[in-house]
Design a protein around this nucleic acid. Structure first.
Ligand code: MN
Ligand code: MN
Ligand code: MN
Ligand code: MN
Lengths: 227, 227
DNA sequence: AACGATATTTAGCCATGCCTAAATTTATTT
DNA sequence: AAATAAATTTAGGCATGGCTAAATATCGTT
């Protein structure tokens, strides 16, 4: 049979499953169908295929979980996705809000040699443009940083933006309009009790120090390092 | 209907058709099936699809030809293919015999912005690693060079390798073993009447001048510029 | 423990692109 | 002008990966 696990669809399913597993979620037909914009019935069909290929363990009505084989494949896809994003932003001049869609395509290009050479060309970057860790060529995905959500900061604390939770393009574009980017160092001047907004202060691209009001919804999605 | 012309299969058909048209061949179901390793019956089916999409003009039993729309799409694919090959060889350190397969995948990534930025990043290279001209971002595919097949050279003439006819990997690897590469300047010392072999002389990578015997079959596939 | 709500699977359908075998058209010979 | 050969199309099937609607299993409530 020609049944291999190297198809765009199957790979997207593996990635979706890993993504939910990393968040600690149960892998149900409904949750995957939402993530991939398909229907639960379609997911059931794919779960059977992936299970036959030993990429997942699937118990009808009980859910699915990645096998080691499936996990390896998923991590390889994450590696490709994040390296291509890094290349597009750092070398080709794309904005961080412009690369996700294209990386969704590039991650499916099959060539270990290509991605390892691209990685080497860029000097083995540890993080992608959204602050997400890039698995190394052996599939090790580690992140020793202690990032915390900005909404947990106290008045007076200084943070450095190192990542974002979720990275859909409109959210990223919104951040850009606020001058928020990776590595930005800011100070919490005040937390408003009324609506949970954060008053922060930082030096903009133009070298001028200004104050901004970040919404509660926004700061929950921002990850920072504190010193 | 979801019937778009952006599928890997359809794109590969368009490329195959353009490739044969450029060689002046008639586009038959048989010729395309050979090029794509499918069967004539499958090509008939695809010709109907491409015809419905107005990418080709198709007359049953008479053959097919690209429309302007189809030609534009095919040229865009050629552009992507050659730019990715150039990137892999000139930036990532691949050999010219290692990039074709991967470029076959990369050419299907859909993003005009990506390929135009990659082109700019590389400084708009005019030719790919195999000496083939790269269409510009507006789809202009021109080649003002006057390349001739090496077997037409006379004893005593000096040539500069600028391209190869056909570029399957084993052929290219073979060239590599002979020290033959783009830009190589050589002198024809003698043409053997017996077997049509060419005795040529050039300075190798190590700086040492040596003589080589190039087979008739080989020199027919080499394109050179003479000064 | 039984009911209703919710989640999941099954059944049956569709589009894409490939295949083989059979029918048909076109080209070549005599 | 037939007859044969070659090329091409048609017919019928298969695998993948979607869908909807209906059947079934599981879960939360009372
Ligand atoms: Mn994808
Ligand atoms: Mn990312
Ligand atoms: Mn291709
Ligand atoms: Mn090439």
């Amino acid at each position: 049979m020609n049944t291999s696990y190297k198809s765009k669809s199957r790979q997207d399913y593996l990635k979706a499953i890993l993504s939910l597993e990393l968040k600690g979620n149960k892998i149900t037909t409904t949750s995957i169908s939402e993530k991939l914009c398909t229907k639960p019935a379609s997911v059931t069909g794919m779960f059977k295929v992936l299970s036959d290929l030993e990429l997942i363990k699937y118990q009808p009505y009980k859910g699915a979980k990645l096998t080691q084989l499936g996990r390896n494949e998923a991590i390889s896809l994450i590696r490709k996705h994040r390296l291509w994003e890094t290349f597009m932003v750092d070398y080709l001049g794309f904005g961080w809000d412009e690369v996700h869609e294209v990386a969704e395509q590039l991650e499916h290009v099959e060539s270990k040699d290509l991605i390892d050479k691209l990685d080497a060309y860029m000097g083995n970057p540890p993080f992608d443009p959204h602050g997400d860790p890039i698995p190394d060529k052996d599939g090790n995905l580690t992140d020793s940083r202690r990032l915390i959500q900005v909404h947990t900061l106290q008045k007076g604390e200084v943070g450095c933006i190192q990542g974002v939770l979720g990275s859909n393009d409109t959210f990223l574009k919104h951040l850009g309009e606020f001058g928020i980017k990776m590595g930005l160092v800011f100070t919490v001047k005040k937390v408003f009790e009324y609506d949970g907004n954060f008053l922060v202060e930082f030096v903009g691209d133009d070298g001028v120090q200004r104050e901004y009001s970040w919404s509660r919804k926004l700061v929950e999605q921002l990850l920072a390092e504190i010193n």
